[in-house]
Design a protein around this nucleic acid. Sequence first.
DNA 1: GCAATTTACATTGTGCACAATTAAATTGCC
DNA 2: GGCAATTTAATTGTGCACAATGTAAATTGC
Lengths: 167, 167
Amino acid sequence: MSQPGTEGSSFPCGGQDPLALDGQLCFALYAASRAMTRAYQPMLRDLDLTYPQYLVLLVLWEWDAAAARGESPDSGVGALGRRLMLDSGTLTPLLKRMEQRGLVSRQRAPRDERVTLVAVTDSGRALKPRARHWVEQQLESSAVTREEVASLRGRLWQFLEKLGDSP
Amino acid sequence: MSQPGTEGSSFPCGGQDPLALDGQLCFALYAASRAMTRAYQPMLRDLDLTYPQYLVLLVLWEWDAAAARGESPDSGVGALGRRLMLDSGTLTPLLKRMEQRGLVSRQRAPRDERVTLVAVTDSGRALKPRARHWVEQQLESSAVTREEVASLRGRLWQFLEKLGDSP
DNA sequence: GCAATTTACATTGTGCACAATTAAATTGCC
DNA sequence: GGCAATTTAATTGTGCACAATGTAAATTGC
């Protein structure tokens, strides 16, 4: 990898040049995110999912469990988009592909015909234990501890909130 | 934003469900990376660049400065890809678009006809001070301190190296 | 000295991301 | 009740990402 490390420096800046690639937080995030997606490929290949499709299923599985508890979460495309921070231009075709494969159902809400309700089907539900198994394996075989992961995750959300405040 | 925080937990897991979306480090990275790209949009719009094109320019500007110092960095598409962790399927069309706009030059290396040498043109060089200005502004107006940014960046590269070790 | 292999890009095809626009349904305001 | 404003998805178009494959130049082995 041979990337720089933790030597103290500044916002996107590493040494003295604020435009040095290795000093950019944006590049570190970009590279880390894609590396993470690559790390999920064995599981995704096994489940025959793409990474964003997997994230959609994580949400739908949560909604499914909530519904099983008697709750009625807002399960429209908009709610899904807010949860994943994705818009309909990304989600609509993605959901259509998943519907084609029988993993999810899409239907207009009777109460408000503008809303498209999305839910996991039995086929989609069947992937959950397989995903759980993969993720647990990943956890154990990883060179990273749970604490490190939790800490990094916390810092990322913290950073995200500050990003939202700035503009 | 209303995402969870730093409450101690595990690899992708937040509470007890290892599949909880808010517990996934992968999602935190994915969301943070896209939010970061969004934060760069004002600058990118001004420079009429996409985010990956900007990253390519960061590398080419470094190569340009190295060449001005009398060094001769490997400036082929392959070297660019290794630096940005992108492959030719991504870079080739991106570089062609930048060449079309006159920002970069592409030519076969005389010594090895397999190699396509990439370099910034005067037009591409002219964007550097404008980018520097934007980035310095960003640094000052940000709600995040330089130390926080440097620390997060360091942790991300650390994490990336461990990801590379694991498989 | 030349076949086999390797290297370095380019090409092809699929699936995101996201800006911008459109269209349909609902709500609010008289 | 009727119509403007708003809300919600879907559509359109561009540009990444990346797997898989192709192609040609360079290198290696014998």
